[in-house]
Write a protein that binds this DNA or RNA. Structure first.
Lengths: 230, 230
DNA sequence: GGCTGTGAAAGTGTTCACAGCC
DNA sequence: GGCTGTGAACACTTTCACAGCC
């Protein structure tokens, strides 16, 4: 009976955010229309994939012409929920935490950091952007006060789980975790794990493979030798 | 004729890096063996998936017992190429760049930042970790001097492409790009694009969806209304 | 009994090719 | 002619179930 409100795949959601950013730049340039080819190239994806992504929002282009930049922009913003401002807290004000808190891009994309927390008394009171760092003890109070549902964890790995537990208990339902530590959470809470060092590691692996492929003529009889040479 | 050196899927490579980190922690605890269940739980993945991942390296566990911690650790390190140290450069010493440069985890995983570069004269000369920030003009010299093949870009978006071009011209073949800007590179060069704000955006979307799902009884006749209400 | 290793199945995401419309 | 929208094919991952071994 339900024709379904059309589920949007997660991979698509991530790319929609990228398209929105590219459109913002394009919009500043005063462009009125853009083709899937052009948009895809600027976003670094395949044109057909981009069209499929956009089609999840329903038809939103004009055949033979392309996409109207302002209309598409508004549609994307609405689909992603950027229109309404969301209150976030950030726990762990090391270099990474400071980088994220100071990133100007967040404000325009619907995120406001209403709380910057740190366990180190030396850091409490510092001004990052226009927000003052508060002691981690205030966590529950900040979450309750602003009705925070999204949190960013940039603490050392050892304390990430306990911080996470406190966040969840206080009512946070969505967490981005940069600490190299898997978090366990109750059902209904989303965690996105981001491991910066893994990116480098994958590159190193690919790099190494390139080296191996440059010498494909050496054909060892023993397969384990190849694996070992990796 | 070739039984194939067994290609390892990229998704698996990324997880192998995580397993290696977990094992390092476990190894410090003096454990001699570990089951796929335990390792998977600590890494935040499915046990069957973990076993499949490890099976790409060939059999490396003991049935009925589990995996020998030191042996598995060494095998993973070899597969990922962590044993040999790799020279990297990092361009753009803002907060994010500093966070990455200061991350102690890299050293133990085979990465050494031999060059920290920035275009801002005010930042040149700063000491980050035990490396001095150099002017971005030195890029080609540093890459050539140390035979750098891996670079991390944490510059503003506007200059990311030109920095990338210089890196590639200098001989870099693998790039992690944190600037919100798609990079175009010649064939043979790998780019991994990391967009930190996209993670938050996806969470916001999921968060919003939860809210919608809490009121599933409202069954509007018009589908577009649902899409719009997003 | 317990746990690994792995084919087979299910699910997800990507690419292709072309019909449909301007 | 050009470009969107989309079903169908394809590729990639994940999950399941169980055979094989200690």
């Amino acid at each position: 009976m339900q024709p379904r409100p059309r589920m949007i795949p997660e991979a698509t959601v991530a790319r929609l955010a990228v398209y929105l950013r590219v459109l913002a730049g394009l919009s500043g340039g005063g462009r009125s229309h853009v083709s899937s080819q052009e948009l895809a190239s600027a976003a670094g994806v395949n044109p057909a994939g981009l069209r499929k992504d956009l089609s999840y929002l329903g038809p939103c282009g004009v055949r033979g012409v392309g996409y109207a930049v302002p209309a598409l922009r508004e549609r994307l913003a609405r689909a992603l929920g950027v229109e309404q401002q969301r209150a976030c807290v950030l726990v762990g004000m090391g270099n990474l935490g400071s980088a994220l808190a100071g990133y100007a891009g967040f404000g325009s994309r619907g995120f406001t950091f209403v709380g910057l927390l740190d366990a180190d008394p030396a850091r409490v009171g510092d001004l990052v952007g226009d927000t003052t760092v508060r002691p981690v003890e205030d966590l529950e109070a900040v979450v309750a006060e602003h009705g925070v549902t999204i949190a960013v964890v940039t603490t050392p790995a050892e304390v990430a789980q306990s911080v996470c537990d406190r966040l969840v208990a206080a009512g946070v339902r969505s967490i981005v975790n940069f600490a190299p530590q898997a978090l366990t959470v109750p059902a209904g809470v989303d965690v996105r794990q981001v491991d910066l060092s893994v990116e480098l590691q994958v590159l190193a692996f690919l790099d190494q493979q390139k080296g191996v492929q440059l010498v494909p003529d050496t054909l060892p009889t023993d397969l384990t030798a190849v694996a070992a040479a990796r």
